[in-house]
Structure formats: C-alpha cells, structure tokens
C-alpha cells in the first residue's frame, strides 16, 4: 500500500509539466478514479491547498497521502512528487554547465529568455481575473509592486502586510456592520 502510494505520486511528479495545477487531473486519474479517495474529499483537500504556502503539487500530494494512510502516507506522497524532478534537474545542472557555450544552445537561449519573462508575466492577468478584482482593489497589488520594485521592500514583508491588511479589513467591515445595526 505504502509502496504503491509512493509509486503513484512519483509517476504524477514525472508528468507535472508547467505549473502545479497540472497535478489536479493527474491525481484525479491516478488516485480518485482508483477509489483511494472520495471525489468530494479531494475537492476539500484542494481548497485547503489553495491557502497553504509552498509548492502546490507537493502540498496536495502530502494532504492526499495523509488522508489515505496517515503521516507515513503524507511523507511518501510528498517525496514521490519530488523524486523525478529532483534527479532530472540534477542531471541538467551537471550537463548544462558543459553545453552552455555550445553556439546552438546560445542561440536558443537568446530567444528563450524574453519569452520566459513573458510567460512569467502572463499569469498576472489570469490571477487578476481569478481573484475577481475591480480596478479599485487593483491599487493593492500596484502599491505592493511599487514598494518592492522601487523601494526594495522584501516580498516577505509585503506578504505579512497583506495578511494583517486582510484581517484588519475584515474587522473594520464587521465593526461597521454592527454599528449600522444599532
């Protein structure tokens, strides 16, 4: 059972190409359809994963593993998702140093670099749409960006500020609601 869980998640890790969300259909196919986990339970776990820090794919794997066979299951599932990518990157790191100066590789990377920056920028738009923001609330990320980019404030502080800002706003809203009731 443990071995099979590890094996399944190693397989899932191997096929996670392009972003953590790619694991969702894979887990559905390999774990949920096999009857290891209930579909509604899986969606509950997904909802929790959305609000956890760290690597999405590893987090959902750990949660699913936990649910199926406890702490050991969680550990094995998380390690499973790491295993294949780890060795592939190590291989590449060893290899890349040697081919870096190859003229063809140089040509390819000259074109790849601006494209990668574009691919990083693109999810801004998707995240903007997904978070159902208005142009007024768009001020929050803009201010955050200015603070980080021009004033070199660490992203960590911005995240902490965001947490407290969210709590503060929530308190302010409930306080105002209570006030209008009286």
């Amino acid at each position: 059972m443990h071995f099979k869980l590890f094996y399944q998640f190693t397989k899932i890790g191997l096929f996670t190409i392009g972003g953590g969300y790619a694991v969702i259909p894979l887990i559905e196919k390999e774990i949920v359809s096999q009857g290891w986990l209930d579909r509604t339970e899986f969606y509950e776990l997904l909802a929790i994963t959305e609000s956890l820090p760290g690597v999405f794919a590893t987090n959902i794997a750990a949660l699913v593993g936990y649910k199926i066979c406890g702490v050991r299951g969680g550990l094995l599932a998380a390690l499973g998702t790491i295993l294949a990518p780890f060795f592939i990157i190590i291989l590449l790191a060893v290899f890349f140093g040697k081919i870096q100066d190859n003229p063809y590789v140089v040509k390819i990377f000259k074109a790849l670099r601006p494209v990668v920056v574009g691919l990083i920028a693109a999810p801004c738009y998707t995240a903007f749409k997904a978070s159902k923001m208005t142009f007024k609330t768009l001020l929050i990320p803009i201010i955050a960006l200015v603070l980080m980019f021009f004033f070199h404030l660490s992203p960590i502080w911005i995240i902490v500020l965001g947490c407290f800002g969210g709590i503060g706003y929530h308190k302010f809203k409930t306080a105002r609601k209570n006030l209008s009731k009286d």
């Binding site: 999810p123 800002g165 706003y169």
Partner: peptide, 29 residues
C-alpha cells in the same frame, strides 16, 4: 480566511515583480 483574502491581491504583485526584475539588458538583448 481573511488573512488569505489579503494575500491574494499581493500574489499578483509578486508575479509581476518576478517578471519586472527579469526585464533587463541580459534578457532583452
């Protein structure tokens, strides 16, 4: 959950920051 509501708009800024700080002479030749 309200802390997470506060973090969500920030994550857009974090993504933009990653893209913006890589927009330099090394990558745009």
């Amino acid at each position: 959950s309200s802390a997470m509501d506060g973090v969500r708009p920030i994550s857009i800024a974090l993504i933009a920051l990653a893209a913006l700080s890589l927009t330099n002479r090394d990558n745009f030749i």
